[in-house]
Simulated assay, not measured.
Amino acid sequence: MHLGLWALEVMAGKVVFGTPKEVQASRDLWAAMNAPREKPQPTEKAEIAPAPDAGAIPLPSIVETYGVFDVRDDGTLVCPNSRPLAGPNLPRENSQQGRVLKALTMQRGGTINSLRKAYAKWEQVAVELCRRLDLELIYRHDGHEVDGIVDANTKVFVRRRLPRAA
């Protein structure tokens, strides 16, 4: 206790101890430690305009609901995140088939990488699942419908199978 009081007196300059250089350095440190902290001033942030998404496919509007899926005006299906993937004919949500179906019906369709994460052999599972649920796979690359996977930027969608013309 006595030592602490003595150290405070040295810092306050009431007692001379050590070389003047050491004492001054200690006093400066003590003053800095006990000084009120300065509030950081807000910095001006330059407004950054969003980059144009040149390769984005415009989202069609939702026109109806089909089972747990919303149907867009182009016929593709989307399963909103808030809606569980459940139904009498649908696979369990965390099964391999359920993960593939969920990835296929994401907001902008499943990218190849998201589908590979769902299941390595996603295409076999998706084809079988679509056949069973009377759906079909469609592929889009650079905003155009293509026959199959072009590269990792190809988006895959699920669409209700259109009735065949008689």
Rank of each mutant, 00 (worst) to 15 (best):
M33K: 14
N34E: 02
A35F: 07
R37N: 08
E38M: 10
T43V: 15
E44I: 09
K45V: 15
E47V: 15
D53V: 08
A56R: 07
L59I: 12
P60A: 05
S61E: 04
S61Q: 06
E64S: 14
F69I: 06
D70E: 15
D70T: 08
V71K: 09
D73I: 04
D73M: 00
L77F: 10
S82F: 11
G87T: 10
G87H: 03
P88I: 13
R92H: 09
E93Q: 10
R99P: 04
V100F: 04
K102S: 12
K102R: 11
K102L: 11
L104E: 07
T105H: 07
Q107V: 13
G109Q: 02
G109C: 08
G110V: 04
T111I: 12
N113R: 00
R116T: 14
R116F: 00
Y119P: 00
K121E: 11
K121C: 03
V125F: 13
E128W: 05
L129N: 02
C130P: 12
R131A: 10
L137A: 02
Y139C: 05
H141G: 02
D142T: 05
V146K: 03
I149N: 04
I149M: 04
A152Y: 07
A152N: 09
R159P: 05
R160Q: 06
R160C: 02
